[in-house]
Amino acid sequence: MTVTEDTTTTVEPVTVAVIGTGAIGQDLVSKVHRSPVLECALVAGRNRESEGLRHAARLGYPTTSGGIDAILAAPRPFDVVFDATNAMSHAEHWRLLRPLPGTLLIDLTPSRVGQFVVPTVTGTHAPTERNVSLISCGGQASIPVTHALANRFAVQYIEVVSTVASSIAGRATRLNLDEYVATTQHAIAEFSGVRDTKAILNISPAVPPATFRTAIHAIIPDATTDAVRAVVADAARRVRAFARGYEVIACTVTGDQVVVSLEVAADSDVLPRYAGNLDIINSAAILVAEQHAARLGSAAARTGAVR
């Protein structure tokens, strides 16, 4: 969408910066690398020797160990900044980036600061606010289903239990369990209208690592197995449009208790297959950035402005 038919103007690609060089940051860089409309302009970390910065440099992208200060010091603000640091740092990053005109901040941490986005639920339009929260991996995996169930049935309670492989759970994830739980519960409630929600996260050290999984338990008095399966299958099909490894493993209804087990396998150049937790949240983040790029592109086409 960055290419306009008006050949008298040159539309520059949408520039993005990634802050945070853990597994999630590395996968973001590789997904930006794959994207036809996003141009990685800077990858910022704090340790020059980190694997994340080396990976970005190998792909030919500018890197810095200057962290958020380097992002702020850029001569022209980036169109999109991905925050792949931690929930505690995010609020400060937003405070610093907020004054920059035109920068969209996309938050991969469970900070609960920005506008919640779940692609199949909040739609494919560009976000209306300049700070967008991707909630959490468990939120991205479960909310498409919990939202669909709540639309179809009178749901009384929702509980989401996710299990992440230990080898892919970095220090920020481990320190942010409280934020993960609070933000995931809050988002499930917000999108389903069900007040009584619970989120649980397990970290599994099994070897070989198990694929990321999310179990949804719901109390639904009038559910039938066939009706639940149809709703869940439809929701999953829509998620697979952008996260190909998203699968329903089991779906059972016993009395008023519904259990839906989901697995997400990663489709990534850098992540192992089992790291679907990172793949689904990053795929959603890239989708948001691409929608933003499309909006910038069409605005440029309308005005004929050179951005």
Binding site: I200, V259, S261
Partner: peptide, 8 residues
């Protein structure tokens, strides 16, 4: 290698 908490 199920660990405690993985009843699902």
């Amino acid at each position: 290698q199920a660990i405690a908490g993985q009843e699902d």
